[in-house]
Amino acid sequence: MTDPILSARDVRVTFDIRPRSAMPWTPSQKLKAVSGVSFDLMAGQTLGIVGESGCGKSTLARALIRLVPAESGQVVWMGQNLLDLSTSDMRRVRSDIQMIFQDPLASLNPRMTIGQIVEEPLITHHPEMSKPDRVARVRETLDRVGILPNMINRYPHEFSGGQCQRIGIARALILKPKLIICDEPVSALDVSIQAQVVNLLKELQAEMGLSLIFIAHDLSIVKHISDHVMVLYLGNMVELSSSADLYATPRHPYTQTLISSVPVADPRYVKPEVDKIVNNDLPSPINPPSGCVFRTRCAHATDLCSQTKPPVDDLGQGHLVACHHWKTVPSLGS
């Protein structure tokens, strides 16, 4: 098998939380946003990352490209650890890794025309290009994502959310990157637009051999686009497997509740009985539960779960689960 294009090893991100009224000498609290996540991404494939809001999925994505500092771990991109690179070396890597954001309008500077916005990556990374060449590239790229190139002098607020997201995609695309990190790219859009944007991303991926990291808070969108899916809970990876496996045989109790909560458009379909989440509040990441982080809401929790953190077990074919009792938890639908 070929080497992964990106592999993360035990990435940890911790934030210092300091209330405004705190005295300078009081120790700050630690918020463990991401506590030890590892995964591999193959060239041309898509990794979906799923979890509730506040589970650290956006933070993980930002830590990969050093938008937030990682506390420890490794992010190996084509043989080099991004977390060790100097700022100028990192700048060169940035032209290969691009990002698409959740709020399409907020990710575009309101004072710049969309032409200027899409051109900015070229100015930053190819200052030697002439202005007409750059404009031609901008038009070509806008055309590719379905924005009329004669809109080049318009401003972001003159476009709809879906169009803004296409402009964001054009900006990510113009440098012909190898990886695009999509941070909930469709969750702010209307359902009818969501499918269009996801399809556009899929087309572009096939055309350009892109790798994608696709973050979402519900499983149904991720299913269509991902080769592998990772489920995060409170900064911990709870399950990672190929997309087909994950939907067919989810083993972690949390993944099971997530899958059973996806609405199904078939009136004859009877949902399999899944143990409901016991307690609906997400525990605070400042003070996470001991042992298994999911135990406060897990119907299968035992004493063991509160004492030790479950190891990551490999069920074969890269299906990873972090649960003490995955063997005895009844599987979905069987």
Binding site: L67, Q98, M112, E120, H125, G168
Partner: peptide
């Protein structure tokens, strides 16, 4: 704001971010 984050992700230098964004 996400557009400043986008500029940082692109590798735009800090002074340029302040000036342009």
């Amino acid at each position: 704001k996400e557009f400043v984050e986008a500029a940082r992700a692109l590798g735009v230098p800090t002074l340029t971010i302040i000036r342009r964004h």
